[in-house]
Nucleic acid binder design. Structure first.
Lengths: 137, 137
DNA sequence: TGGATTACATAAGCACGTGATATGACTTCC
DNA sequence: GGAAGTCATATCACGTGCTTATGTAATCCA
């Protein structure tokens, strides 16, 4: 399948876009989820984000240290931790999105109008593919 | 730009495909380059792979330890190191490609024929995009 | 020949991931 | 209602992969 190499190359390219001074993909993805769906328990975060529970604990520890998220207690369950995004967290997500958009836009501008159109046409299908990649059926 | 979120989601999805017991993207990419272009000096590897020289030194050290690559000396330059891929390295690349292909194929099968067609049509444009992402003009 | 440059290695440190295990809180069941 | 089990989270030990700063040779050149 030729598509495999294409996705690998895309993966490598996207890794390179990652602006060194912005938050990571996993950090942004988790904060965006908290922004979108409100405070979540740790155990409700690690699975959708596709990482182990210890990995999520550690990520939240880093986010908390950097003031991007907070740990709160769940009144209904003493074991649980309610994670929430802070204003600084929301700002960090927006900043990353902006930096990322700039990197993509720079590459995009160098494509032909036709190439751009083809890619934009494929966006819904690519989104579906991403979702399917996420769920190991 | 909607495309930014799409690429982020794709990036996250591709990260999740990565089979736990196969070599990493950077290892595979470097070994594939050695396979494609023959033995290379360390300094000729780190830049195209988009990592620092120490990162490449460390990668080659791990690859050498695992028997996937070898360090040889350059008769013409006593400072240089000639890195070559071994048969085991070639096998590891092939194995990873296979595992990766399987993951992609599984997702692909769940797409509609139309979605598949749209994505395949976009492959050349996506390759161009990947290449442009790689070069920070 | 001796100082600058080049190629690579080393060191210290951080992000991110894993599996195994500890700890404390809820639940269940006799 | 208390022992036993389960659940949520944390901690530990470890590995990869990345960075910047710096060390150490070998080569180049004025």
């Amino acid at each position: 399948m030729n598509i495999v190499s294409t996705l690998d190359r895309l993966h490598a390219g996207l890794r390179r876009i990652a602006p060194r001074h912005e938050i990571s993909l996993i950090a942004a993805s988790t904060l965006a989820r908290l922004e979108r769906s409100g405070p979540q328990r740790l155990s409700d975060l690690h699975d959708p984000e596709g990482v182990s529970q210890p990995a999520m604990t550690q990520l939240i520890t880093r986010l908390e240290r950097d003031g991007l998220a907070t740990r709160g207690s769940d009144p209904a369950d003493g074991r649980a931790v309610r994670v929430a995004v802070t204003d600084a967290g929301r700002a960090a997500v927006a900043r990353r999105r902006g930096a990322h958009a700039e990197g993509v836009a720079r590459a995009f501008r160098q494509l032909s109008a036709e190439e751009r159109a083809i890619i934009l046409t494929a966006v819904p299908a690519l989104d579906r593919l991403s979702e399917l990649l996420r769920t190991p059926d």
